[in-house]
Design a protein around this nucleic acid. Structure first.
Lengths: 210, 210, 210, 210
DNA sequence: TATGAATGAGTATTCATTCAT
DNA sequence: AATGAATGAATACTCATTCAT
């Protein structure tokens, strides 16, 4: 009934094929012909669904972005700074960056050289950064995290999460033999974040100088 | 007298030109012709000094690597975990990643899709990671940093440093308007690292659960 | 109906165009762009059908080789040493080397400097040489051709045929004005071969010393 | 005293180096830089002695040509058609084509595609062909070699000599393992030529039909 | 004369994109 | 909607040749 039921399937097949090829060959090395072949389609049909190669990546990023948005509700909806809540958020990140590993690869490969991609990446990061900054400020209201610049620290911590999740999921950089297990990964990231945010620190202590 | 004095100058001019073009256009977009023109040379001379584009990048990485090595002496020679020592190390990183910003860009753009580049990048990271892991283990001997997996945490912290220095120096991603000032950058990175390594923590306290 | 009917036509057009350009300009001077233009196609399509220039030549040689194989049945199938049989074989050679003149040109131009081409050429020659050697040995069993080393003589005679057919067909070397007429060419080659093989010699005479 | 004593030595060194490189890599693959290096000279000096690459080859051919001329005195001075005389002439060819193997390689590789080279090659061949034709005509005056077209047969026989000497000296085509020994080579070529010219045939017999 | 760094025209090759079927 | 052959602009790379020293 729905017109385009089949069309939508083809589009999805191309998107999925692109992710497979990108993960295997890298973004720059991914040729349209390879993607089409991986999808079991002809080259030509690619252009029925996407204007050009950048448009394909934009489509991939859209889903990625949407999932990140779903994962990170706006500040008012933030959960408490309990260990369970933070762990759960980290687990969400970890899972999301696994799912969207090809997209992250594309972001790293092209983001800094392509203004359009950069803009999307920036927006995606801002969401996560805002949340970190929010947490830091809330801690500071409680007398903790003194000496931390909320914006800068949030950028650094989010960078750590983003890059490290990507790194460990890629299985190519720091731990090529045997990818990092989910639990150990989340544990480690939690321990660092918890220290940085002083989640368990003394109510009104003076953790760092200054 | 020295034969090749002029040749070496040309080689250096090409390397320097490449860095400028890469920083401006990105690595993938950097054409040999652009690099040659930027150096005020003809296309052909490029191939007098480099086998191909990858060889040029390998040459760039060599200097970067050498500087990082100089920056991170082997563990036995490590300084104490005093604030001054750690700050100084971070300042070194910050400066080095500014100097080698084009190289980092190339690493991000091509490292995950080119095995040869990846191998160099891995080696460069390993030095920094080993140092972090060493510090964490030393803290653990002192009863601190319980619950931190030295290898994983080191990978994550080094990733934060590397990515964040690059990010802030690029002036394109998180803080496009007005780059991050040196002091604020180093301060922020120090505050996070100090917390993660519990540099100021209680001698034998139990900072985190577990 | 047949998928690829059009594709095969294009491939053939390129092969035929290549032969024309090679015959006109020589193999080394034949540019891909010229071949494509001669075929009325774009440069790019060349690479749809051939990996590179050597691959094109390999494809040309394949047909040449196949025709030579068809022309020279294996020893058991050899005809008698009658004048008619030998003349017919020579006529076959003469015609084949006319048809595949561009291929011979490529063989001479590149064969000695390109191991892959050399290998094909060697195989093609071996067939003809084996046949000559077979004939010589058969004559020796009849008491003729004493003093002829079958292998060496066969190599020399085949060389004469191959080089001379090429030479006369080329119309550039020995008889530039007015190519050699078919009948005169075949007559001359027959007279020489007949003498060398002593096709008409005395049954058990002693034609040469030794 | 002689101006250019040293200069002449350099020129000779370049010529000799060119022959070595051509024999090793083939003519088309021989780069000026390789030749200069082989001669222990700089690239630039090449152009002090030769206008361009073709000029170098022309110089090589000059010596080759001169030697061939010395080897084949004009018809009036011909030796008799005794076995010893013909064998000696063949031995001269065999030795000359060994000495000038690089030149022959260049002739085959470029002669058919370069009019200037072709012209030289043609002249060189004509001398040998004229001698063969002269011998054939003399035999015909004696009632032998009936049915042989002197010009065509001479072209074919000379082609056999030229190509076969080259072939066997190259050690790459027909007998790659173990080059052909001098004596066997000359013997074989003599046996064929002797039959073709009917050097030992009956005074007024009818060797072949026609 | 000799050097070797520099030049740049010439060519092969790639691959995103188009379009007739 | 789908096909896949065809297009051609873009770009890496080669190497004979020049020229300042």
């Amino acid at each position: 009934m729905t017109p385009g039921r089949k069309a939508e399937a083809t589009r999805q097949a191309l998107l999925e094929a692109a992710r497979i090829v990108i993960a295997r060959d890298g973004f720059a090395n991914a040729r349209i012909a390879d993607i089409a072949r991986q999808a079991g389609k002809s080259v030509g049909v690619f252009y029925t669904y996407f204007d050009d190669k950048p448009a394909l990546f934009a489509a991939l990023l859209e889903t990625f972005h949407a999932d990140l948005v779903a994962l990170t509700p706006p500040p008012p909806a933030y959960e408490e700074d309990t260990e369970a809540a933070v762990r759960s958020a980290l687990a969400g990140f970890w899972a999301t960056y696994r799912r969207y590993h090809p997209e992250m690869l594309g972001l790293l490969e092209t983001g800094l050289a392509d203004p359009d991609v950069l803009e999307v990446w920036r927006k995606m990061r801002q969401r996560g950064i805002r949340r970190f900054a929010f947490r830091i400020r809330r801690q500071q209201e409680r007398g903790r995290c003194r000496g931390l610049d909320p914006e800068l620290a949030a950028s650094a911590l989010h960078g750590m999460l983003e890059f490290t999740c990507f790194n460990w999921h890629s299985g190519r950089l720091d731990f090529p033999q045997g990818k990092v297990a989910d639990e150990r990964a989340i544990d480690t990231l939690y321990e660092i974040v918890a220290r940085a945010l002083e989640l368990d620190g003394p109510a009104d202590g003076v953790p760092t100088g200054a």
